[in-house]
Structure formats: C-alpha cells, structure tokens
Write a protein that binds this DNA or RNA. Structure first.
Lengths: 206, 206, 206, 206
DNA sequence: TATGAATGAGATTTCATTCAT
DNA sequence: CATGAATGAAATCTCATTCAT
C-alpha cells in the first residue's frame, strides 16, 4: 500500500493529524502504566495523567477504558504477531531441522524482545481480554505451517495438515512462552534441540 | 497510634459441623457466582447474596474476598490435580504408546469434567492469581514423568530427563487444555493419536 | 463499713458470686486490651476474646460496650482518686512547704504508678469519656484543699477558699500529669521545688 | 502483584479559585459536622452531605478522612495559636502585674472566641490527635516566656528559665482552658487577679 | 476540542448487638 | 446462664464516566 505523498486531494482535517498523534500518545501512556503500575492499577485517571491530558479527553479518542487497554494490547500483539509470522515466513522456503531450529530461535527472540509486556499480558491480564488476538495469531501461524506442509507432500506422517498444524502450534506456543517467562534451567541451545526433536519426531514418524 | 494488633486469632469452632457446612456453602456460592457472573462480578456482596447470608457473615469463615476466591479455585485445582496425577500414577507401570494414549485420554477427561470452571480459570482469571497452583501441579506431574523415564533407561533419546519432562509437560498441558476449551474440529481418537505421535516421536528418536 | 462475715441472712444467689468474678474478669480483660491494643481497637469481640468468653456473654454483665469501657476507666480512676486523696489526706495535718512538697511527690507517684494507663486515658480517650470522673476527683481534692485552708485562717492571701482551691487544683493537676507523661528535662527534686514555689507564692503573697 | 504505586500526584489546580473555594467549603462543612454531631459522627458521608457534594468529591481535595478532620482542627488551632502568641508578643515589652493580667485576659478572650470548637477539641477529640499541634503551641509560648524572662534578669526567683517557663505555661494553660470551658463561679476579674497572684508569686519569691 | 471537577454507585470490611440453641 | 453464629448498617474509599465551561 503505497502512501500518497504530496497528494493533491483535499487533506484530511488537521484535527485528524492531532487525533492520530493523540491516540498514539494515549496508547503509549497506557502501555507505560501497564508496565509500571500493573494491570490492577490501569485506571483511566492514571493513563490520562501519564499522557499528560485530562481524563475527559480520553473519551475523545476512545469510547471507554476497555478500548484503551485493547489498543495497548493490540499494539503489542500486532508487534509480536508480525515478528512471529515474519520469522516463519522468512524461513518457509527452507527445509528440515535447520529451518525448525532457526524458526524456534526467532520465535524466542520475538517473545523475549518485550518480556515485561509479555509477562503482563500472559500473567496479569485475564486471558479473555486477549483471546481473540491470540486466536488470530495462532490461526495465522497455523496457516503458514499448513502451507509449509502442503509444499512438502510425502514427508509427513499424516496428511491431515490442519490437525498437524494445530498440534504443532499449540505445543510450540506454550513451550516458547513459558521458556521465555519462567526461564527454566535449560540453555537456549538445548531448548532449540528439544524443539527440533519434538517437531521432527512428530512430523516424520513412519 | 498503631500498636501491635495482636491477631485476634480465629477461635476454633467446636461446632465443626456448622462451620464446615457454612464454609462449603460459601465456596459453592462463590463458585456459582464465578460461573454465572464471571470474574469481574465476583464481589463479596454477590457471594453473600448467593449464599443467602449477610455480607458480614463471610468474614466469620474467610479473612477477605481473596481467600474466598482462592478457596473456590483451590477446590477446583485440587480436584484437577488429583485427577491428573491419578491418571498418570495409575499408568506409571504400563509402557509404550498404549500407556501414553490412556494417560492423555484420562487427562482430557479430567479437564473436561468441569469445562465451565476450567474456562473461567484459564480465560477469566489473571494467570498470576493461579500461577502457584499451576506451577505446583506442573512440578508434580513433571516428577512423575521423570520417574517414568528413569525406570526405562535406554529407551529415550536424551538422558536429561528433567528437560525432557519439562518439554513434555508444557507441550501436553497446552494441547489438552486448548483441546478441551476450544473444541477444535479434531475427534477425540485423532487427538489421542496425535499426542501419542508427538510423545513417542520426541522420546524415541534415535 | 464493716463487712458482714458469716452473716445469717440468706446469701445472695451463687450466681452473684460468679457474676462478681466475671465482671472483674471482663474489666481486667478490657484493661488489658486498652493497654495492649489501644483505644481504637477496644472492641467487644476483642474484650470477650481476652476474657475467654463469648461476645454474647458480655451482655450478661454490661448493657453495652460503653459500659465496659466506663468500668475499666472507673476502676483506674477510683484507684488514682484514692491514691491522690489519700496522699492529701495523710498530710492534711502537716503544714507549710514540706507538706506541699510531700503531697506533690505523692501525687507524682500516684500518677506514675500506672503511666501506661494514664497515657491511654489522657491521650487516647476522648476526654469526655472521663470528664465526670475527672470532675469528681477534682471536686474531692478541692474540698480537701479547702478544708486545709479553712483550718489555717490568716495564712492565705485570699479568703475565697473556693477560688483558691480551684486555681491550685487546676494548676497542679496539669503540671503533674504532664510531668509524668511528657517527662520534661526536669529532675524530680527540681519539679517539686517549683511546685512548692508556685503554691507558697500563690498562697502566701501579702 | 503490588508494584510501586507511583503517587498519582494531585495535579495542580490552575483554577485555584474553584479549588480553594471547595476546600474551604469542605472544611466549613467538617467544622459544622464536628460541632453539630460530634467527633464520633464525623464521617465522610456526613461531611460530604453537609458540604452539598458527593462523597467521592471529597477525595479531590483531601487524601482521606483524617486529612479533612486535620484541616478543620488546623484551621482552628492556627487561629488560637496566633491569637495566643499575638497576645503575648504584643505585651512582651510591658512589665509587671499589669502585663500578666492583660495577657491572661487576652488569653481567655482567645479561647472564648470559639468555645464550641474548643470544647470539641479538648473534650471530644482524643488528645493524641491533637498532641503535636498542642505541643508546638506550648513550645512557641514557652519560648516567648523565656525571652521575656531573659530580658529581665534578676527579677526572677530562678535562673532556670526553661523550667520556669514550662511550669508557667502548663499551669496557665489548664487554668484558662478550664476557666473558659467549665465556667466556674469565678468572675473574670477575680480569675485574672488569681492568675496574676499565681504568676507574680511564683516568679518573684525571694 | 479540551478540560477536569463532579459524580455516585459500588466495593470491601468492621463490629456492636441479638437470639436460637 | 452461656454461647457464638449471624446480622446488617455503616464506614471509607475508588474510579469510569459525564458535562458545563
């Protein structure tokens, strides 16, 4: 989607500019509050304070508190989703254990990039407030995995790629998230070895 | 002004009968409220209402709201933990794919026995409010798995049983929970097949 | 008031015996709570707990919480009053500075005997809850002072003994109480010197 | 769970006018409640009611109930303190019985100006809630007295001015307060005579 | 558009008192 | 008499949201 630069079309109201900037400011403030003060202290007053605006002004940009929090998480989720999907897409052409390992590695990197926010999202937020986004990401990744599988007929144990992808995604998701959050006494290399073993064993079994 | 507040220790209730009954009533009411109205609406007033007692009476049996909710979840968690650990323990002597399949099956049963509460715990509660219990269960299961592995030397790909167990537990945990909660278009038989494939593939790889 | 011992009159109900003992027990408990936990924590539940009885039982012996607290303070006040009046009475026959000094000394001793409770009564309790008793004690002491003055005509500046006594009592009361509670950097001897100077100067002025 | 709560610092109110006015209104309401309903009935709800605002609004101007009550008393205490210190300061240059009499007279006036509130403060409030202010005032007055004494070497019985001032302040404080509150059958003139006698007798004795 | 004071329902918790047993 | 569970009003405080300016 190429951006119109120097468009001759009548520019959107200048307020739009301000709006956009203010929305960003509020989201950033919300993120800050979430990280600094935690989920329970995420109040509209605090967010407004952090954003340096009046509580009333929040309602010019968001219909209610939930929408602000949703936007904050959206922002983060989109970021993670893009990193994760990116990690996968980049390596979709590759093949075999090396591809799995590299992907898993990128996955851990993606989650570790914002551990603090990840922890808040996974541990502090009720999962429900993130369910849709999480499902969407899982779905997206599943489709990429299915594409990968479809491109390599005969190399997998099962031809039910939907199921295979579902299993892989669910298993790997929890593994990486918990690896990043809980920091078990497992080196990164060992962890990657195990992920590779898990995936190849599952996929390739006779 | 503030002196040692000398814990007005909860007097023992000689009428254990009444006490016990009321505690149960409150926990049941809490569970009901949690299921019917959700986590956010879990208020002391509502619980008291549901239990048919006065709000003040709650505090004869629980020190605060958190303790009530904790009791509700504890009750459920203990139940799940016992079922899960039981399922595993019973089959610890068995061996091979059949054992894995039977265990996974029992696991799904254990979680499915109270889907509604499972959903609340997994989706509505902030994970943090349940982390300890969850970790404890994971730890308990991990130890059982390690015992299983230790009893069968030479049949596993790796001798680092701690890591192997960690990986298995994390992977299977999310798989079963999500299978039960999300109800993907995968038959129970197929699901069990996949779990067996995942485990055997991971464990047995040369 | 000689006590009837071995009276032939029908003895009061045995409950009376118990009553008396229980009243004492409750008062002692209340005193304990007041000292240990402070005025704000003086609750019927705590007193009952300390007395080792049920909260309901309190109401067999006292009409309400206020009455319990009043009894606790009464007990203390009577004690102080007796010591103070005693100190004065014993020395009523004496004369001059030595008498004043000895009395003041006994006064300080009387108050210091129970500093902890004195502090609670003076600093924590609303004065109103003690006003009547305090007034009564002041009145009692004033009468003793007036008797003293009346017995020594011609030695005082004024013949309005009521006023003289009022002034003396009010001045000395605060001096001793605050001396005991605040512990200013004034030795006991010096303090007594000053009290003597104050009294003799006031009384004897030409 | 509990993180640094990052004091949501009270934003400055640019509309100082409104703010100030509301603070005044709340203090006035608090004073009214204290006078009309007494210390025990001084509740946030009642104060808000009296102020004609919602209970929540109180917390825009005061952090908690105690702060409201403190403000009410501060207002009064400052007033009394200024009157008392003023009365003393004005006459610090004067000398002898006339000075003492005038000062005592001003003192009584200062306390009598707000008998109702004085009664509440002295009789209803636990002294502890006012100790600091009271001590500060006493200290302030003591220093003025010491200055007075220091300026007139050789006219006092003792050179330990600290002690002398302590004694005088403690004695006079209770005398005036109780004179105003209890209204003993002593005319103002007579009362002043006695205070003069007490002070001159104490100070000048050979 | 922006403000921020005001709202007011509602949450948690305490505790003096009662009354069935 | 004694019990102690039960009460329930009331207290303090929070916070999402509104609306007059």
């Amino acid at each position: 989607m190429a951006r119109r630069e120097h468009s001759l079309a009548p520019r959107k109201h200048p307020q739009q500019q301000r709006s956009r900037a203010m929305v960003e400011r509020i989201i950033a403030a919300g993120r800050e509050v979430l990280l600094r003060d935690g989920y329970d202290a995420f109040s509209t007053n605090r967010v407004a304070d952090q954003a340096g605006i009046s509580p009333g002004s929040l309602y010019q940009y968001f219909p209610n508190k939930a929408a602000i929090m949703a936007a904050v998480i959206d922002r983060y989720s989109d970021d993670v989703a893009d990193r994760v999907a990116g990690a996968l897409t980049e390596r979709l052409g590759d093949v075999g254990p090396a591809m799995i390992r590299a992907t898993a590695n990128a996955l851990v990197d993606a989650l570790a990039a914002n551990v603090d926010l990840l922890r808040v999202v996974i541990e502090d937020l009720p999962a429900a407030s993130n369910l849709d986004r999480r499902r969407a990401l899982e779905q997206r990744v599943r489709e990429l995995v299915m594409a990968y599988l479809a491109a390599r007929p005969g190399t997998t144990r099962s031809t039910d790629h939907a199921t295979t992808a579902w299993v892989l995604v669910m298993a790997i998701e929890n593994l990486t998230v918990r690896y990043v959050l809980d920091g078990p006494a497992i080196s990164r290399e060992l962890f990657l070895d195990e992920v590779v073993a898990l995936c190849t064993g599952y996929l390739a079994i006779a």
